[in-house]
Design a protein around this nucleic acid. Structure first.
Lengths: 331, 331
DNA sequence: CTTCAATATGTTGACGTAAACATACCGACC
DNA sequence: GGTCGGTATGTTTACGTCAACATATTGAAG
């Protein structure tokens, strides 16, 4: 910086002003400084800047397995939103579903100088209430709404409800549910809302069938459901399970949606190209990322009047895998 | 740090020594300092440390869509390996397949104070030879081997070869190939090696069928291939396409592996649970992550004698989707 | 008892930046 | 023409740490 100042014939403070885009710099001076920067290949030193400002310009993201589609999408969205706000993203993966593992990742990120942390919780930990070291802004995504931190998630309840209502509206007497694993927050909420929507509508509540998000588990559940003639509509908690389910139904000679309507959740890229194209619930991860970053910035910048909870509305996408029940179907 | 020093009754320099785990500190003094740190909740300031040492303790990762399975896995593996080396990972996503977009992400990461950058290239850019600003260690993963940077990738050629050899060894006269998109480096290498293995074995080379990695594209290709009785073995360039392919064959009444053997590439989580379980090529992403970090550290620490190219050997996993051709099948 | 080496600890200064304050200049107004 | 307010720029200082050097202490060897 000193070299730039010398070359441009100004003080280092003026260089600093130009680097930070302050307004009160003469345009001619600014030009001189910029060209000097160019000549010398000057890059501001973020460490020195952070030392003075106390800000690092970085957000931390803690997430479970990024091999999982939702987690990866969420991470990508947070990274995009962070860049918009001129923050970089420090990523740290966690393997074990334990509070200890999360806390360890947290400690590591604190040491790595981030201004705030997004915890993509997605799965339940071994302890019911997460307690992290204070003095660090935190936002939880996809996780438990029980603890003290601001929270961002899709409105799973609304998504489920729209699917179940859609199927009931088509004339189905009730809707079966192929749920995700019990340790997933999203799976729980989807199942709860499915149940409530049925009871609110006065429809009978069939037993829940559990899968593990995989197509394989959907297939196995489907082999069972295919033998029950009373099953005319199934809501799978994600698209992969819906895929497996449809395949099992097909193999058992039950047509979709002729004999059985099937709906999923997530709207993965392939959903529109399945046979038949899958009715599902679309989720806008970009919005989730934006909200996470916004809530974090609220805390970092000391704003306490903002919302502490954001629910992103998913949208029902009706395709061809759902239809009215066949007339004269078992009631 | 000054407070810790006061509380422990030592100088700040001694605190620094304890924080950095230097040897020449009396164990009693060390204890005092550590307990003072505990009491005051002291955390070293990485910005100040970076300012003095010139090191940031962070690696940058630039990647295309993390929604893609391979990219997400690679990112996760790099993050894990980086943590082992006490580096954090600064992630930046790139949407457009242009050199300009990559260069932009690169600039941003340079400003964000990283010690080196891994570029997960995976897809071809608009310009043939990538040129990045110098004075920053770079490692390219999954990408073009043509440019100057050290490179890490799976040995796609070997993986392809083992699949094709396996199928030829079972007695198939030749092997068809369902390739990935032309702008993918991995897809190109897999296709090239498939072709070479066939010609080396004196087998005829059928026309290449192109997909786009999706199950849908595999399905569509399968609808076509199913009508050709001369097709007895197909090597799909990834597992998703193999899935779609198998489904199309099944619908067309051609059994797998009875009528047609199918092999994939990637060994995704579902591969072992398909019907039939898929013969495919397993890739160890963890090793790729480790190599990326190791090559980067070589550069950061000024070692120039290390290897400049690392190929991770994928492993053929034979399951039930491949078998000898039906006796008396068309030759 | 002196000398020396080894070990433990303290003191000083520098890293690159931006905030706070100080100064210089300009034009407008009474 | 003097005072005032605004704008452009310069000067000083502190941020938290660690390297380099300086000093104190200890024990062993001569």
């Amino acid at each position: 910086m000193a070299d730039v100042a010398t070359l441009a014939g100004v003080s280092s403070q003026t260089v600093s002003r130009v680097a930070n885009n302050r307004q009160n710099v003469d345009s001619a001076t600014r030009e001189k400084v910029l060209s000097a920067m160019q000549t010398l290949g000057y890059r501001p030193n973020t460490a020195a800047r952070a030392l003075v400002t106390g800000r690092f310009g970085a957000l931390g993201v803690i997430s479970f397995d990024v091999g999982a589609h939702g987690n990866a999408r969420t991470l990508g969205a947070i990274a995009d939103a962070a860049r918009e706000a001129d923050f970089s993203v420090n990523f740290m993966g966690v393997r074990a579903q334990t509070e200890a593992a999360v806390r360890h990742a947290f400690q590591h990120l604190m040491l790595q100088s981030v201004d705030g942390i997004v915890l993509v919780e997605s799965q339940m930990l071994d302890t019911p209430s997460l307690r992290l070291p204070p003095s660090m802004p935190v936002v939880v995504a996809d996780g438990d709404t029980g603890h003290e931190y601001p929270h961002v998630d899709f409105d799973q309840a609304h998504g489920s409800q729209s699917v179940v209502s859609h199927l009931l509206g088509l004339g189905h007497r009730t809707v079966w549910h192929l749920a995700g694993p019990a340790d997933s927050f999203a799976a729980r909420r989807r199942a709860e809302s499915w149940r409530r929507t049925l009871t609110d509508a006065g429809a009978p509540v069939p037993p829940v069938v559990y899968g593990d998000w995989s197509a394989r588990s959907g297939y196995r559940a489907g082999l069972d459901l295919a033998h029950r003639p009373e099953v005319t509509a199934v809501f799978a908690a994600n698209d992969q399970m819906a895929m497996g389910l449809m395949r099992a139904l097909h193999e058992a000679g039950r047509s979709v949606p002729g004999d059985v309507s099937v709906a999923g959740f997530d709207d993965i890229a392939e959903a529109a190209y399945l046979v038949p194209p899958l009715t599902t619930v679309h989720q806008d991860f970009e919005v989730v990322g934006k909200h996470c970053v916004a809530l974090l910035l609220d805390q970092i910048e000391g704003r306490t009047d903002g919302p502490r909870r954001r629910a992103v509305e998913p949208v029902l996408v009706v395709r061809s895998s759902t239809a009215p029940p066949r007339p004269g179907a078992p009631a």
